[in-house]
Simulated scan of single mutants.
Amino acid sequence: MKKAGGMLALAACVALTGCATAPKTLYQWDGYQPQVYLYLKGESPEQQIAEMEKALALISAKGNSVPPGFHAHLGMLYSIAGKSDQVATQFEDEKKLFPESGAYMDFLLGKLKKGEKL
């Protein structure tokens, strides 16, 4: 009898565990981490920009949030690619989403306004 009760309890635990879903993460990292790695390897910024823009569109379409540093990294890639008009927008987005990055983003924006290399 005890053995049957134990088996029943084990079966119930297995059934309940199978129904559990993984918790939703705070940020979606789609495409971000591989692009940072490619940046460090010296790969083409244009290709990285395309991948990050694609990831941003997917993350936004799902109603999720980008991780800290996403917009800052995309801004740096725009800077390398010579797309200075888009750099400031990305840095401002980073500041808006992550106020703790404000001092660093302001530093980079100051360099950008002076025409210095980031």
Rank of each mutant, 00 (worst) to 15 (best):
W29R: 07
A57N: 13
E94R: 08
L108C: 10
K3W: 00
K62D: 15
D106T: 05
G82P: 03
L16R: 03
L40H: 11
E46W: 01
A4H: 00
G18R: 08
T25W: 04
V36T: 05
G69V: 04
E92T: 12
K83W: 02
S44K: 05
G69P: 04
M52L: 15
E116M: 13
E53T: 10
K24Q: 09
L10F: 01
A72I: 04
Q86C: 02
K117M: 12
F70M: 12
A57P: 00
G31T: 02
D85V: 07
L108D: 06
V66G: 03
E100A: 14
Q47M: 04
L8H: 01
A20E: 04
A103K: 15
P45H: 01
T17G: 14
A88N: 01
C13R: 02
P67F: 05
P45T: 03
A20I: 13
K54Q: 11
L77D: 11
A15T: 10
L112D: 10
E100S: 11
A61Q: 15
K83M: 09
Y27R: 14
I59S: 04
E116F: 06
G5R: 02
L118M: 14
E53K: 11
E53V: 04
A57D: 14
G5W: 00
I80K: 03
H71L: 07
E51I: 03
G63V: 08
G75C: 05
G31H: 03
A12Q: 05
L108E: 10
P23K: 06
S79W: 06
G110N: 13
L118I: 11
H73T: 13
Q33S: 05
A81Q: 06
D30W: 02
Y39P: 02
S65Q: 07
A9Q: 08
G110S: 13
V14C: 14
W29C: 04
L38Q: 08
L97M: 15
F91W: 14
S65H: 12
L112M: 12
G6L: 00
G115Y: 13
Y32E: 08
Y39W: 12
F91A: 09
A72V: 05
F70Y: 09
S60A: 13
L10V: 02
S65W: 09
L8D: 04
L16A: 15
M1Q: 04
W29F: 12
V36M: 07
G110T: 06
A61T: 07
T17V: 07
A12K: 06
A22Y: 03
W29M: 08
